[in-house]
Design a protein around this nucleic acid. Sequence first.
DNA 1: AAATAAACTCTGCATATCAGAGTTAATCAA
DNA 2: TTGATTAACTCTGATATGCAGAGTTTATTT
Lengths: 108, 108
Amino acid sequence: MEELDPLLHQPLRTQLVAFLAGAGEQTFSDLKRQLGVSDGNLDAHLKKLLAADYVAVRKETGKGRPQSFFVLTPGGRQALNDYIRTLQRLLPIDAPGAEGIATPRLAG
Amino acid sequence: MEELDPLLHQPLRTQLVAFLAGAGEQTFSDLKRQLGVSDGNLDAHLKKLLAADYVAVRKETGKGRPQSFFVLTPGGRQALNDYIRTLQRLLPIDAPGAEGIATPRLAG
DNA sequence: AAATAAACTCTGCATATCAGAGTTAATCAA
DNA sequence: TTGATTAACTCTGATATGCAGAGTTTATTT
């Protein structure tokens, strides 16, 4: 059976990565606001994504408050694409608007 | 931001529910073999799905070894459909074969 | 009827998730 | 220009989740 990347298949991280994929570079605070999550929780999940090189940080200091900018790496983008393809194979995702399950298909 | 049903958004449970949706009623052993998972783990996840009424059991006894047949309930099927729709809104799932992320869209 | 095996279920450990307290650094007010 | 305030993180510990294997029950086999 297909494997779902456990790093991406978690509610907050899926949203986080999806958001980064769509919106590009984001600050810690932007992410916190967008996802409505606590500091500690966001930090913990970002750390995992950083450790896997799915996300990279660019820290800016000197001008204004110190800020970290988070971006999806090429590897992260690839992982997301693979993840989406796995979901598509696993779930009956046909076309937008027709996502309901009509007829069960027999097991393999 | 959209919420991803945490009961469904977990690797094993997503596969489990997807499989039940596609293949219909399955025994414990069938599920174990198909998913390649330990007894204890399968039991734990099935319990959660049962508690949420996403899945129902029918226990057969008397003729042959006692067996439990697990099925997706209408509620479970609905939850799965909602879950898929949420994924589609969240991720750039457009059409099969074109799932790559081409152009970032700006944040809300 | 004793041994074997299938079909579950329970227990406990390991890891993950999460919120809030703590820390550092910049801006603002006087 | 310095003390207060606030934004931007980071660390800590408490709770929940995930998991494997040991244990239990019930049927077959010999």
